[in-house]
């Protein structure tokens, strides 16, 4: 029964459809909520960091049409996690590489799981 807004130049519109376009967006969203609930940061801290990430992306040429929103969200999450001493950039990179390795050795279609040997020391 939703009335789609009239598409117009300037402000991009959408129907009242699903709000996560890819599963990772949902995961990133939920992680921020869970970390806030656990008290890792306050909403003002979160909003300030996310606002900075959006400004930074705009300055770097991001069209900031809302489509890239969860990329900014993820950047903000990584920064806060580092600032709060949970995981620095080096740790994040090590786990990122391990996941890359895990994906590489997992046959297509099988669930990708992280194993100790995916970490190259």
């Amino acid at each position: 029964m939703a009335q789609p807004t009239v598409p117009v130049p300037g402000v991009p519109c959408d129907a009242e459809g699903p709000v996560f376009r890819e599963p990772w967006e949902a995961q990133a969203f939920a992680m921020a909520l869970a970390l806030h609930e656990r008290g890792l940061f306050t909403w003002p801290e979160w909003a300030a960091t996310l606002g900075e990430e959006i400004k930074r992306a705009q300055a770097a040429g991001d069209p900031d049409t809302g489509e890239t929103y969860y990329r900014h969200w993820l950047n903000a999450l990584e920064r806060l996690v580092a600032r709060k001493g949970v995981a620095d950039a080096g740790t994040l990179a090590r786990y990122r590489d391990a996941w890359d390795h895990a994906a590489d050795r997992t046959p297509h279609g099988a669930p990708i799981e992280l194993k100790p040997e995916d970490f190259r020391s």
Partner: peptide
């Protein structure tokens, strides 16, 4: 048949989730 692929963003999200 060589393996799976995760996008850069997916890798970062998985890394973060695993650490947390």
């Amino acid at each position: 048949d060589h393996g799976s692929e995760l996008s850069e963003t997916q890798l970062r999200v998985r890394a973060l989730e695993t650490i947390l």
